[in-house]
Design a binder for these strands. Structure first.
Ligand SMILES: [Zn+2]
Ligand SMILES: [Zn+2]
Ligand SMILES: [Zn+2]
Ligand SMILES: [Zn+2]
Lengths: 144, 144
DNA sequence: ACTTCTTTGAGACTCAATCTCAATAGAGGG
DNA sequence: CCCTCTATTGAGATTGAGTCTCAAAGAAGT
């Protein structure tokens, strides 16, 4: 399903209104696979003359997150990052402490074990955060 | 080694001064195994007539974290939690979304696999965050 | 076009955490 | 014990991501 249709469908199902601003924010998020913060998304919109207010960017992102179109990441640096989640398989993240590069990983074994561990401790998991922080071996990374 | 001696030793090694305030903050953190925020630690100190300013609580915690005596946890709710780390083995956390109970877990297999995964992706891990969020099956938990 | 209800924008506000800077107080030497 | 040199402290101001307020604008159904 196309981005626009998906957005319209979800908003309609929740009795929320389809607006130009929501479409613009959703388009902007769909335009890359990067892990961007709200301010970054807001600035990109302004740069292409699309005037959506900061408050609306935040509010729209909340709507998208609640409806599973966008994923919120907390990398521990004080601001949330967002990534398009539509049709994207689950993954976790490795972050380079030097160049802030973010790489995605997914390991079925870890996913299963953590589920098992939680069950043993008397929990039903809803979501999880698994992030690895370290140094990448990339040539272009500053610390080389 | 006793808490006080350990603190003195580390401060001395780093050419930092041993002060009454730093001792009080460290004592307060050592007094429980809970995962407390800075405001909570600050309030406990005031309650027992120990006047350490808020700024000093934050600054002292930073010193303790940098020197590996205290661990900083980010559970994604906008404020850092802290736990005594001296002589405590590595573990990760499961959090109940209903009652905010925090349970610790440690799985050697996960620890090994994540190390392996990182190596394969060209990273040397320095630290990691692994948190599971869900519902606990405790009788006393609100959502029952 | 009309009505109803939601959404938007601008700026005020929140809250954890950090910063500023004058006053205070460790630590080592004499 | 006193002196000097710095590091530390406290009170309050400041920061910055994110949220809230409310009057004006605008979806969507009739
Ligand atoms: Zn995962
Ligand atoms: Zn990702
Ligand atoms: Zn671990
Ligand atoms: Zn713990």
């Amino acid at each position: 399903m196309h981005n626009t249709d998906k957005l319209k469908q979800i908003l309609h199902k929740k009795n929320l209104r389809y607006t130009q601003q929501r479409q613009e924010v959703w388009d902007e998020i769909c335009s890359t696979n990067e892990h961007r913060d709200a301010e970054d998304i807001y600035n990109s919109l302004r740069k292409r003359q699309t005037n959506v207010s900061r408050a609306t960017v935040y509010r729209t992102i909340d709507v998208l997150v609640k409806n599973n179109l966008v994923r919120r990441l907390d990398l521990g640096d004080g601001r949330s990052r967002f990534e398009n989640k539509m049709g994207i398989a689950h993954h976790d993240h490795i972050v380079c402490l030097d160049c802030r590069k973010i790489v995605e990983f997914m390991n079925e074994e870890i996913e299963e074990i953590q589920e098992q561990v939680a069950k043993e401790m008397g929990f039903e998991i809803v979501r999880h955060v698994h992030q690895l922080f370290g140094h990448c071996l990339d040539e272009k990374c500053p610390n080389k």
